[in-house]
Design a protein around this nucleic acid. Structure first.
Lengths: 348, 348
DNA sequence: AAATAGCACTCCCTGCGTGCGAGTGCTAGC
DNA sequence: GCTAGCACTCGCACGCAGGGAGTGCTATTT
């Protein structure tokens, strides 16, 4: 049992070829198949020896004694690294993606487009994680009074994502008070994230007893419900459930069911997807995503962060069967992340 | 071949019992099974004769010669009618539903809750169709200028659903102009639906050449992009994909795939769901929904409209396998529609 | 020493025949 | 009009044999 069969260059190539053929055919790969790919410069017997080594190394396994070999998660990991360095996206794919984004106007639309493209390219799920409200930067706040005493709160961020809420405030406000509060927020907090604003308000209230305590209280009373409302958790957009349902690896109904319910619990997805934000590489490839579901072993997740201006906003990616077209998917994710970021900055 | 086997009361009861047992077991129902349900007051032979009649009438069919009978779409339709008149929801179910809604604050939340409840109760999909933007009633409009010339448009409706957009207007506006326009909208159109407003503006512009033509133009220029934006089509919320994936009738992967992609094309769903708005009965039961997909034959859709105040806003319902627990589902849909309407009116 | 040819062996898959059981349709009798 | 009885039809599970794909091992070649 040699422990590091990947030392040898030839072994690496054989492993890569094996993964590639398995991805194409979906069936255990025999020594003959590999030999053919090498134009028979190596006999099947030789290949068999190498395959045995690779199996010892944990890169392959046999479904049963007299079957071909199937790549393990480790093999996919190796393979993803191997191709990540070299491959580029085909011109057609690039153009297609560009076209898909061209018509999109609103943020909602480009999110949907992105999800669609990613699903299509991977035969899996296209996922886009929008940033949680707390990370949104405040550009401008506006408050006004409705005749019946309710208050309309509108928060505008640079992306043109506005959040608003009509709320019944804890005490009556006059329009003057509201104006003063809005003015205070705009003057002092324009450019801050909502999260930061909230924390600052709380700290200030606790520590300082100043002239503007009233303003602080008003600001908190009015902004808190907006920020704490519906969407404190990031919004997850998933496209392509139909695709993944038809993948042969999910012929097993129970597994499919588990996967689908995992998708419905979006917070789990978010954590795994957002891992790419802190990762060193531009595109993160995760093979075997157990966090998602038991069936996650057979899943691969390719994700990349997207930005708006300078800051990271969220992440997007592809969740599909481990047996997927990595070359295309990895590059597509990178490209979509880029175009997505660009388009996001463009629309006002 | 007798043409109307349902004339006879006994036949009706046998058919209903057969459907009921089939829903329970999921397997072709034999004459013996029915005989047992009748406490053997009728022999299997008699039952067999009746079943043959029912088959001629198009209510049953045999998967193969020596198998039991399976209900057809017609049988389900009959069954749904039969039970619709009598059944009521269990106390536990009522309480459970009420509890589910109790905590919901925002419209988004109650929509999600409703979807969840409906999915749970039917082992199928819970679907809620929100009204298209055009049907929203305008309560109040507000416009303001940002320092860089962009304009924030906020439309408030009685439900507290606000729509807003930051847009770069076709020409420069002053805050005075904006105020005048907003004032005009509020004075003239408060209480109208956005659709109606838009049409009226267009008509007025075409026919009248009046002093306030400028106002009309401004109003149109500013409101149109908001209304025409992202959500002109109704919003469809679907919950419970995981449930339906595990239904034995979708063991066939191809069918499941088709169904899932049908769900992704939401506009198709909307049409079928909204049929209940114009239907005479409070809850509409559709058996075999071919509009959705080929596999739709095995699908049943139970839907009901919901209101806010006086007007119908949208519809909600359940999409599941024909073999579903109708009693519970029909009543649940009715009840959820009611609670949904109430809760909708309550939240400001 | 590495690569290869050859061979025995393992295991899956398919097709075939068989028997069993559930369920029906029909007919004769109550 | 209902029922008992019987012959008949299928589907299904089982066992079995044959073929094929693929492997591991060993002896041989380079």
């Amino acid at each position: 049992m040699r422990n590091a069969p990947l030392q040898e260059r030839r072994n690496r190539q054989i492993l890569a070829d094996l993964v590639r053929t398995y991805i194409e055919t979906g069936e255990p790969v025999s020594s003959r198949a590999i030999s053919r790919r090498f134009e028979e410069t190596l006999s099947t017997a030789t290949i068999r020896n190498i395959m045995a080594d690779l199996e010892d190394g944990g890169f392959l396994y046999q479904p049963h004694t007299s079957a071909g070999r199937v790549p393990t998660a480790a093999a996919y990991r190796f393979f993803a690294q191997e191709i990540a360095s070299q491959a580029t996206l085909s011109v057609e794919d690039r153009e297609w993606i560009r076209r898909e984004f061209a018509a999109a106007q609103s943020r909602a639309e480009i999110t949907e487009r992105a999800g669609h493209v990613l699903a299509e390219v991977s035969n899996g799920l296209g996922i886009v994680v929008s940033p949680p409200l707390g990370r949104t930067v405040l550009e401008h706040a506006r408050l006004w009074l409705l005749p019946d005493g309710r208050v309309v709160v509108v928060l505008i961020s640079p992306g043109g994502i506005t959040r608003d809420k009509v709320l019944r405030p804890p005490r009556a406000f006059s329009q003057q008070e509201l104006d003063a509060t809005a003015d205070f927020l705009n003057r002092r907090y324009s450019g801050w994230t909502l999260e930061a604003i909230r924390n600052d308000l709380l700290v200030k209230l606790a520590t300082e007893r100043e002239a503007y305590e009233g303003l602080l209280r008003s600001a908190l009373a009015l902004c808190d419900p907006v920020v704490l409302g519906e969407e404190t958790t990031p919004l997850v957009h998933v496209e392509g459930t139909a695709q993944i349902a038809s993948a042969p690896e999910f012929a097993n109904q129970a597994q499919l069911r588990e996967l689908l319910s995992a998708i419905e619990e979006k917070h789990r997805l978010v954590t795994v997807l957002n891992a790419c934000i802190d990762a060193p590489e531009p595109v993160l490839v995760q093979i075997g995503v157990k966090e998602i579901s038991q069936a996650g072993e057979n899943l691969a997740l390719i994700s990349a962060p997207y930005t708006r201006g300078d800051g990271v906003q969220g992440s997007l990616g592809v969740l599909g069967p481990t047996r997927m077209h990595y070359e295309r998917a990895i590059n597509a994710v990178a490209y979509v992340a880029q175009i997505f970021s660009e388009t996001l900055s463009k629309i006002s």
